[in-house]
């Protein structure tokens, strides 16, 4: 292909005429405002990057606590269901009549329950306070 493009001059003239048309309907954004907004966006992005590991740890904590509750309930399911059933009218009547009802929950279970409940509450408070 030849180096010389016969259309170059014609297109150049037209493009320059086209570019010379002033068709901006209003002024340009203020550079000071752009600068401030750009810096704000940059610090926002930096904060998000910094908080990503914390968010990851939070999610892991939620999963651990949920897993803890699931394990606790599974471990003592029979005792728990018996304890819940003890509140039914028939069991109350039997209990009042002196009949043997469900066995009580062990101290270990109660302590595990208290510990897990405390962790859950602490995690919930941490999330609320972090949001604020």
């Amino acid at each position: 292909m030849a180096d010389f493009d016969p259309l170059e001059a014609e297109v150049d003239t037209w493009m320059k005429q086209f570019a010379a048309i002033d068709d901006r309907p209003h002024g340009l954004p203020d550079p000071g405002a752009l600068w401030v907004k750009a810096k704000l966006l940059q610090s926002q992005a930096a904060m998000e990057r910094a908080s990503r590991p914390i968010t990851g740890i939070q999610i892991a904590a939620y999963l651990l606590v949920a897993g803890g509750w699931a394990a606790l309930v599974t471990w003592k399911w029979s005792a728990l269901s018996a304890w819940i059933n003890s509140f039914t009218p028939s069991h109350i009547i039997l209990g009042a009549a002196g009949a043997q009802t469900a066995s009580s929950l062990s101290l270990t279970f109660v302590m595990a329950l208290i510990a897990l409940a405390s962790v859950t509450v602490m995690l919930a408070f941490h999330t609320i306070l972090a949001e604020e």
Partner: peptide, 13 residues
């Protein structure tokens, strides 16, 4: 207008 702002945001970033 929108793309002009985005251009300069990226430029500064």
């Amino acid at each position: 207008d929108d793309l002009l702002q985005k251009t300069f945001f990226r430029f500064l970033r």
